[in-house]
Write a protein that binds this DNA or RNA. Sequence first.
DNA 1: GCCGCTTATGCAATCGTTTGCATATCGGTG
DNA 2: CACCGATATGCAAACGATTGCATAAGCGGC
Lengths: 372, 372
Amino acid sequence: MAKGRVKLKDVAAAAGVHASTVSRALDPKTRHLITDSLAERITRIASELQYRPNSIASSLRTQQSMTIGVLVPDITNMIFPPILRGIEDTLAQQGYVPIIANTDSDPVKERTLMDIMRARGVDGLILASAQRQDAAIVQAMEDGIPVVTVNRMIDDERVSYVINNETGGLALAVDHIVELGHRTVAHLAGPQRLSTGLFRYYGFCRAAKKHRLRKWRDLIGFAGAFNEESGREGCLELLDRGIPFTALITANDRLAIGALQALSIRGIKVPEEVSVTGYNDMPFADMTTPPLTTVRIQTYEAGRRAAEIILERLGAERGTLPAVHEVLEVEMVPRQTTGPVPATINETIFGPRGDTPSAGRSADIAASETDR
Amino acid sequence: MAKGRVKLKDVAAAAGVHASTVSRALDPKTRHLITDSLAERITRIASELQYRPNSIASSLRTQQSMTIGVLVPDITNMIFPPILRGIEDTLAQQGYVPIIANTDSDPVKERTLMDIMRARGVDGLILASAQRQDAAIVQAMEDGIPVVTVNRMIDDERVSYVINNETGGLALAVDHIVELGHRTVAHLAGPQRLSTGLFRYYGFCRAAKKHRLRKWRDLIGFAGAFNEESGREGCLELLDRGIPFTALITANDRLAIGALQALSIRGIKVPEEVSVTGYNDMPFADMTTPPLTTVRIQTYEAGRRAAEIILERLGAERGTLPAVHEVLEVEMVPRQTTGPVPATINETIFGPRGDTPSAGRSADIAASETDR
DNA sequence: GCCGCTTATGCAATCGTTTGCATATCGGTG
DNA sequence: CACCGATATGCAAACGATTGCATAAGCGGC
């Protein structure tokens, strides 16, 4: 921290007035209390002396740190940076600053970070890292600190959120696939402990029912995490079930990329033999081979709205405003991983391989069940 | 900011001692001044009451905010998030927290943000946004606040930096290309106001001389920014010069992606007709079509070192430590955009197109010059 | 010319911790 | 038993800005 900084007193001395007068002259909200000419003179002297208010002292007195804690699972996961930009740009308009930290999806780390942020006196919390069951978040809310989750939501509807229309988006993907003529389509779902994973799964089930897809109940796999590795494994496991399908709807672009890799390993052509869709339209989703068909969510906008909501709550008296639940619309982005249903299905590509000794049993059972 | 938080006084009252005693008992550095049994009791009571020290009050008193300002051009540019993680993880070990902001490569915004950070009392500054001529940085340094630049450096050698071996890395790329038999290779350089752009350009020149490449002086183009658009335009302009080349070394992966697009527009096959290299090995560089040959820089590690360097300087007396200049080693990552030099060069792909009425003049001049 | 009212400025307390200094307590020693 | 030194705790003053209240100055009206 800088050493001999010029402070209010110094400006006051230079202007021949009391520090409190300077304070008032410099604050737009209290400037009217001071004679115009004096206020101007003080302003001039302050800028001549390069006075910069010490915001720590100010925070201590006013009990406002003008900071907002922001938690993301991992900033290197590319869907989060645009959300953060939305937050930062919006907060900046009101003089607030985000304090960003990564939880690595670890609830313990999340709780610790929330403690650190609260010790640092953040005025509010924006959480992109929320799991559906998140005691720390509920705790924070009950302690009276403004909280809003973004991109995800928690099961407790008392906390505000800004999310995307997950079920609707997944339905868009299924509609798109059905329009291409597909009837047996698989779903690689995301982690069900996250609202995104859960709602996209709901969306699939609902759309599958609506379109009366074939064997869809037996063609759902669950990924443990939203990453390429889980995508590969999940896709392989689906293939090993031995139930032929012509399209695979994944819950996330990274899962889709993993699936693309798995399909490539098995020598299955996309989209000729199997169509694939992702979700999010993350940066570079158009750079895959072939370019990924996906559903575009709103990231910057989600961050922007989350910041706005927090800002609204800061002024308001503790708990006086009802929770805000905002759902942003999404958009289908057809690219090259989806195509018309193949005329004939190459059955030999489905079923367990010798070199991947995995879940063959469930495939047998599932295969014996009828379409429903 | 939380309302009725329990403070030192509350703990003191509960323990029947003075606040200062509690303060000492809770601080590991002063704990020895307190009787063990009492210190233990205080610690217990403090945690029972869920006491969390108010770090704002602490900062005011100690004149240390335990925060480090971090400026990046744009967090959505994917090479920065890993740098930030390196910084955050390292700072956290010492109880420091980064305050991150985006400059959008705008010097005015950078200066403003530095002012804001300094008003917030950051103890040091890590800058990933530095331009070679950066008055604000020099200013900050002269004001005695610890500064280190990361990924880039400024021309004033008094400020510490952690960068990658740019000239060496570019030489690696040229060596790789030469090994594949190429003799006429172009370079799409980055902005020369950034140390990365400049040093990679130097690296190209040096390596080109060493290998006695053909016409290399006439095959250098300069991009105005490190992005895909500049890559496209720069590549097109190079093509329009009418000097056939078989390889293009770009100063950055995003420029390379733009170049790939330009080449594709012109119907030029990569790597059969022209080989391309990028620089950085940013996330998803392996997802381009074809996967991009590039030079891998160290990002997380650069962030980590930058944070370490700042931390060292915080303890030390103002300006007592000499500047640290650290250069990290880079690594060649051959992928599919580079291949053996074509047996015969298809001259028709070089020279201005009717549909792109750009820099044809310089091409004529350049074409008339001899190899040197 | 005095009263009362408005407006402009000063005073001093406060936010919660830290820390130099003063004081109390304890054990040991001559 | 008085005294000394060491050790443990308390006291109070910071850190720099904000803000309710007190006071001073200015002004109009009668």
